[in-house]
Design a protein around this nucleic acid. Structure first.
Lengths: 195, 195
DNA sequence: GTCTATAGGCTGATAGAC
DNA sequence: GTCTATCAGCCTATAGAC
């Protein structure tokens, strides 16, 4: 049952972090949720920090830019559609996991005070910013978009996609999909940005 | 010294929350930072929850939409410039307070589990979303912008402005001002959004 | 691998003197 | 208003039996 118990601990911790925050998610509660005794957790994890960190490492792998966007798949024919669809898919993926938003907020708050978490989240965010720049440069090379303010446009896409998930708003009140479609269209519109 | 001590407690708590998070910002640390004894805090605040909540209430007042945007001040002549300038001002205000981002993250994580915090932050966010819609409707009535996807455009502005502050990125690496100017220009560009 | 028992520290909070 | 002394409760973590 070894591998199973370890997974059960990680799953229970994930849910408890979402529901109560990292600090209040104690070994006592985790053990109770899994159905084992408190010290048994120490067989699998050296410390609470170790447990949280392993959960975080797994979490980080799930949200990489490259998991969603493969730049080589974008062509002149499918570019805007593909961009819209992947964004919609990301938003739906995250909304489908009811714990994701809260866990993310916990890790963000931890990152504010702990270099390990800060550096890893910074790297992920950096990949998104750079990834969107690379994507728009490809769009430019395919003559789908002007080169004007291309870095800013890429960062706008990254900011909007990132923050749609962070909204406190209930899903019914706000048109996530419409917002994403509109921002993509704006970035790809032929309009002139000069005053 | 009554009023002064209370303010000192609130200020010390604000900084400690930013540096260590709400849970680790204990009465022992707050008392030490202020230079008083632990039980003295109870003369001013019924409980730790009470102290955090009072800090939060003050925090909320500072970040209201109406503190920054007064719709009646926007005219056909100054509209885009004013929108750009206020956004830049907001970003600079928040960057100038080194504790603001971290405290915000703490309250966001608390809001995930506590109805009081959730409801108040939701109301503030709701005001921003509605406020930008109102603002763009005025722009539309002034013929500065088409009515097309006006709600989505307003929400894009709100999302970008909100998230610029949440970026983990260092200030030098990312062109906050340029991003805001570009998204405002995109929203106000005459381009056609249809396929 | 999993358990019981327990150590030692920090927490929020109270009693009561001045 | 501010203090010292103190409490019960929870926390992470360890010792050691099975």
């Amino acid at each position: 049952m070894s591998q199973n118990t370890k997974e059960n601990i990680l799953n229970a911790t994930y849910i408890l972090i979402a529901e109560q925050g990292i600090q209040k998610a104690s070994f006592a509660q985790i053990a109770k949720a899994v159905g084992i005794s408190k010290p048994s957790i120490y067989y699998y994890f050296e410390s609470k920090d170790d447990l949280i960190r392993e959960l975080f490492d797994y979490f980080c792998k799930e949200i990489q830019f490259n998991n969603y966007f493969r730049i080589e798949d974008f062509t002149a024919e499918n570019f805007v559609d593909k961009l819209v669809n992947i964004g919609v898919q990301m938003i739906q993926d995250q909304k489908q996991d009811p714990y994701f938003d809260n866990v993310m907020k916990e890790f963000l708050s931890l990152a504010a005070r702990d270099k390990y978490y800060h550096d890893h989240l910074l790297e992920i965010q950096s990949f998104y910013l750079k990834g969107f720049v690379e994507l728009l440069l490809k769009a430019s090379s395919l003559s789908l978009i002007t080169e004007e303010a291309i870095e800013e446009k890429a960062h706008i896409l990254a900011l909007v996609l990132d923050n749609i998930g962070n909204l406190i708003m209930e899903n019914e009140t706000i048109n996530y999909k419409g917002i994403w479609i509109t921002v993509v269209k704006l970035v790809f519109s032929k309009g002139d940005l000069s005053e």
